[in-house]
């Protein structure tokens, strides 16, 4: 198998890699916000629930979570493993990344000076208005570098889907490497991920620049 064929075959898996990547972000970003808000709740049981959630999902391997979400239903309830593994894979990634995002949001929210809340309160803003109009835009600006970090990690983590044999780019590469006893697919994978992350870095850099029209 020549290099070109290897690249073409692996590129076929890129679509699935991208599906994991974008769908995870789509679900984990808002889910993380919900967890962060629950974590900050004054109701003990609610914040306790969020803390356990974060603790468990950050404290156990993503690989284990992927296996648990994909095959767990079969072992627990005898439900057959769904053909389309994209669903369990995205669920596992989203709940895992939401835990990390939740902690990033918390750090951002807690770094806000209390004066911003007080100014909003005196001007009569409701709690929701204060959060969405005054606090959140500034929090996003503050946490963007940490978010970029997570996104870069996510790009590489998509390769973890090979543990449940989801046919994304790395899984295909690994199969080729095994059948051809070749190291080339791994180099190709490395280049793919690197280029992907250069793109991520470029886009996030643009976003950061766009948001830095004011100083904090």
């Amino acid at each position: 198998m020549n290099l070109m064929t290897i690249i073409m075959k692996m590129a076929e898996g890129l679509e699935k890699t991208c599906a994991i990547f974008f769908l995870t972000l789509l679900f984990a970003i808002p889910l993380g916000m919900i967890v962060a808000l629950l974590n900050g709740s004054k109701i003990k049981i609610v914040s306790w629930f969020a803390k356990v959630y974060i603790s468990v999902l950050r404290g156990t391997p993503l690989m284990l979570q992927l296996i648990a979400v994909t095959y767990g239903p079969y072992y627990l309830f005898g439900v057959s493993v769904s053909r389309n593994k994209l669903i369990p894979v995205v669920i596992a990634f989203a709940i895992n990344y939401a835990a990390y995002f939740a902690e990033i949001y918390r750090s951002g929210i807690e770094s806000m000076p209390v004066g911003q809340y007080e100014a909003a309160q005196v001007l009569g803003y409701s709690k929701a208005q204060t959060f969405f109009k005054i606090i959140l835009p500034q929090v996003i600006r503050r946490i963007l570098p940490s978010i970029t970090n997570e996104i870069v990690t996510l790009v590489k983590d998509t390769s973890m889907a090979f543990t449940v044999s989801y046919q994304e780019m790395f899984t295909i590469g690994k199969q080729i490497a095994n059948s051809q006893t070749s190291f080339v697919p791994f180099i190709v994978a490395g280049v793919f991920y690197y280029v992907f992350n250069v793109l991520v870095g470029f886009v996030m850099g643009r976003v950061e620049k766009k948001m830095s029209y004011y100083k904090l």
Binding site: G115, E118, Y125
Partner: peptide, 23 residues
């Protein structure tokens, strides 16, 4: 306030207008 507590992500005009309009 002593420390002004203006909203840094809003322009001067938006700082003034937002509460009368949205509150």
């Amino acid at each position: 306030f002593q420390n002004f507590n203006l909203f840094p992500h809003y322009t001067v005009l938006k700082n003034m207008m937002d509460a009368p309009v949205s509150v």
